[in-house]
């Protein structure tokens, strides 16, 4: 747990920031993650065996193994959690969840942490794709692939994927014209409502002066009430 930002050296040459300040540990983050992900994200039972990381599809590229991520959530180290690329490398393959000997569901923990991060306004390729995906679905009630690629990667992206798209269209695999669900307006209204409906008893660490706050790592305007702002702020 990094407590100081500066890399000042102690007289004995020890880096001060190696020291973990146990007093700053807090259980807020665990509570928040559980509130977000429900029972599936309960992690208290983790015994740090590493089975989840060992079998993980993408662990080789992750900077925090799934086990470490769970541990950092337990310790309340939001900064480490949110900075790690682990969240965005998880391919939801459920191997971890299938094997965990203590019934923890690391894949669901990832999902819950991601949801919190997105709500706080974190921006990267993965979140942008998720957002655009949701936006397209929200608009029509069903996915229209060319629009998805357009919104995500711009015209350039469409051109890059165009040969494949044309092949697919010729073989009747995708349609060049969008479809919609029967009543798209009603559908998107309901989804909007679902998103803005208050999250189940989410603790607000910021409002409690004696508990350490969870810093927001974000480059966009953070923490609006509704995620719809976030969606529209994506590049298109």
């Amino acid at each position: 747990m990094v407590t100081t930002k500066g890399k000042r050296k102690f007289v004995f040459g020890l880096k001060q920031d190696r020291l973990a300040d146990g007093d700053k540990m807090n259980s807020q983050l665990v509570k928040q993650v559980v509130a977000e992900g429900g029972k599936g994200a309960a992690i208290a039972a983790c015994m740090q065996c590493g089975t989840c990381s060992g079998g993980c599809t993408n662990v080789d590229s992750m900077d925090l193994t799934p086990r470490s991520l769970v541990l950092m959530v337990q310790r309340g180290d939001w900064e480490k959690v949110i900075k790690s690329n682990t969240l965005w490398l998880c391919s939801s393959c459920y191997i971890c969840t299938t094997r965990c000997p203590r019934g923890v569901r690391p894949s669901d923990v990832m999902e819950a942490v991601k949801a919190i991060a997105i709500r706080q306004g974190i921006e990267n390729d993965a979140t942008r794709f998720h957002k655009v995906f949701v936006e397209v679905v929200q608009k029509r009630g069903i996915l229209f692939e060319p629009e998805l690629i357009h919104k995500y990667a711009g015209l350039e992206g469409v051109l890059k994927q165009a040969p494949l798209g044309i092949q697919l269209a010729l073989r009747g695999k995708i349609s060049p014209f969008p479809e919609t669900v029967k009543n798209p307006l009603k559908f998107s209204q309901a989804i909007e409502k679902a998103k803005s409906c208050p999250q189940p008893q989410q603790p607000q660490p910021q409002s409690q002066p004696d508990t350490p706050t969870i810093p927001v790592v974000a480059s966009t305007p953070a923490q609006k009430n509704s995620t719809s702002q976030l969606v529209s702020s994506s590049r298109n």
């Binding site: 993408n58 490398l89 390729d125 995500y152």
Partner: peptide, 19 residues
């Protein structure tokens, strides 16, 4: 039952293709 990397194909293309 190995993962094919589908869900991260768009955002982490390199890794997905390897899988």
């Amino acid at each position: 039952t190995k993962c094919c990397g589908g869900p991260i194909l768009i955002s982490q293309e390199e890794i997905a293709l390897q899988l």
